[in-house]
Write a protein that binds this DNA or RNA. Structure first.
Lengths: 341, 341
DNA sequence: TTGTACGCGTTATCAT
DNA sequence: ATGATAACGCGTACAA
């Protein structure tokens, strides 16, 4: 079975030394091998169907060619779009992507990082958002510090709370701009489907939105803020919970699009017309939105670029303090929040 | 920088031999190491923050712990859902998933397989559909034969045209059942957005649908079959093309949901009411459908299970002829194809 | 320019 | 039960 042809076989077949065969085949920096020998080696490799062993190369060279990507759920469009960006950038850098998924269990992140460290991944991109949970963050910090001491690079997508390079999405500015835009359109009784209470991205969006609306003179009533999971089901449940209180509300902001879609489903089910009875807005501008009726107002985050940027950042040589790459967001007003003025 | 602690360091620190340290740490089959020594070793490892090198282990053991997944575009919900299934199954088997994407260029598949072979991946799951393109298929067959001779296992999701284990989705039965169901609901003037002409999955669905409708007495008019890309944009373009001919049509079947969503977008844009002016159906039942209005009729394919099944199949010991695992599909009638009788 | 020989970190074989 | 030591497949000083 596992009868792999090795470089020694090729060398023997070509009648040269192992070293020459190695040089001829990887053709690295010092391309110092006579043309005819090179030909012989290549021919022998072809004939024997030689396939280099990346693991052995990694050992000998002291570095691998793989990059780790940590997500919560690859089926979630948010993560899969980021993954597409990571994949493209990794490809450009001739790196393999190792996909590590927590399967919705954030506490697994630490062990995934350890796994990627065992694999000696050159870099790790962590796409899952942080929580306001110091013990967990401390564990991650420790794991990442270990990893970085061993020579690995890390980029986080989210909040800069882990002492590593971070791609920071400007959630606060986006949410505030959205709030102002909605206020300008005449909305005065906002509600928020706020996601997990301790999820930092959710919190940033939630609080910035609330602050901006308050500043505009129409504070969100405490009863009109409901927390829940950062998922479709979570959004649906949150919307039902909100509606059950018979709230005096004219616009609902879900802190991400997936939740907004869940909320929309709830509205359909509850007989609440969007936007006639209620306006609705989300955040992220995932691709899926283009297939939804009514078109959903949201704040665009260039997810694929975020993934690519995070990857490039991780791959750049760099020492010193953790860097921050800021990504701007953009309010996209659509039919789900018509002008009421 | 890259100053990794090795097992030798641990052994020295614990005052035992390399061999003992190895046995103590991996605790493999022959767990023959005295308790106190084991403790010392573990303590030393902990103290030194030792992390095993998976590459070195792979070399020594002769097998890696990674599994390759080949897709066209991880951002496509079809692939990302399959990927979720693969990820879960791989996790259960303690394998890492290496994500290899063709970035929409099917001809890159061969080189991705070679890449995964270099990496000595234990198994490869290929999720992209096949084309009726013998030269390309021959190249893939050769690459996969090489890979399998070197000890790797392969499972294909799609058509059994590559001499490897294949998870076969029963496209024909599903499409035929859909056609009959539509006919039963009173539809008599069908059209087909048929995807790429030589894409086997597209073709199977297209032809089975057409055959079944013909058998029911209402053949699809040749002018009402339009080909195009297997994407959202492809579906949109195909719908526009179809509509431009002013066709006498009462139901449109798009050979996958992503295309159907594109078609739906075109309809919105063209002012064609679905389902009032035209009924619409797709295939796959991707998650996204639950957010679309009207709810789209489709044929369900259990994508996540398909991914998991493909992975399990690849991991089972097996010799002899390529196996076939058949996956049933199920017609799901929704509001986009109301009863016209 | 080519070849020899050592090292990469681990497992496994074989004595002890 | 434990310890030397030889693989594993390759890259690369160093020597020739």
């Amino acid at each position: 079975m596992a009868t792999s042809v090795t470089l020694s076989d090729v060398a023997r077949e070509a009648g040269v030394s192992l070293a020459t065969a190695s040089r001829a085949i990887n053709g690295s920096a010092n391309r110092t091998v006579r043309a005819d020998l090179r030909e012989r080696v290549l021919a022998a490799a072809e004939k024997l169907r030689y396939t280099p062993d990346a693991n052995a190369q990694a050992m000998a060279r002291g570095r691998t060619t793989s990059l780790g990507l940590v997500v919560h759920d690859i089926a979630d469009p948010y993560f899969s779009t980021i993954a597409a960006g990571v994949s493209r950038a990794a490809d450009d850098a001739d790196l393999q992507v190792t996909l590590a998924s927590t399967q919705h269990r954030p506490e697994r992140e630490v062990s995934l990082v350890r796994l990627l460290q065992r694999q000696r991944a050159r870099a790790i991109v962590i796409a899952g958002g942080r929580y306001d949970d110091e013990p967990t963050n401390a564990a991650m910090r420790a794991a990442l510090a270990d990893y970085r001491e061993s020579g690995g690079a890390v980029t986080l997508v989210g909040q800069p709370v882990l002492d590593v390079d971070t791609v920071v999405v400007d959630n606060a500015a986006g949410a505030a701009a959205l709030a102002r835009a909605l206020h300008d359109r005449g909305y005065r009784r906002p509600a928020v489907l706020g996601g997990p209470e301790h999820h930092l991205t959710a919190r940033e969006r939630r609080e910035a939105f609330m602050d901006a609306f308050a500043q505009a003179g129409s504070p969100v009533q405490p009863a009109h803020v409901v927390t829940g999971e950062f998922t479709h089901d979570g959004g649906e449940a949150a919307m039902r919970e909100l509606w059950a209180t018979g709230p005096d509300v004219d616009v609902v902001f879900a802190v991400n699009d997936v939740m907004a879609l869940g909320a929309l489903a709830a509205c359909r089910d509850l007989g609440v017309g969007v936007p006639d009875d209620l306006a609705l807005a989300g955040f992220d501008d995932i691709f899926t939105l283009r297939d939804v009726v009514p078109p959903l107002t949201t704040v665009r985050v260039p997810l694929e670029e975020v993934g690519a940027l995070a990857t490039q950042l991780a791959l750049e040589e760099h020492t010193g303090a953790p860097r921050r790459a800021s990504v701007a967001t953009e309010v996209v007003l659509r039919a789900s929040t018509p002008d009421r003025t």
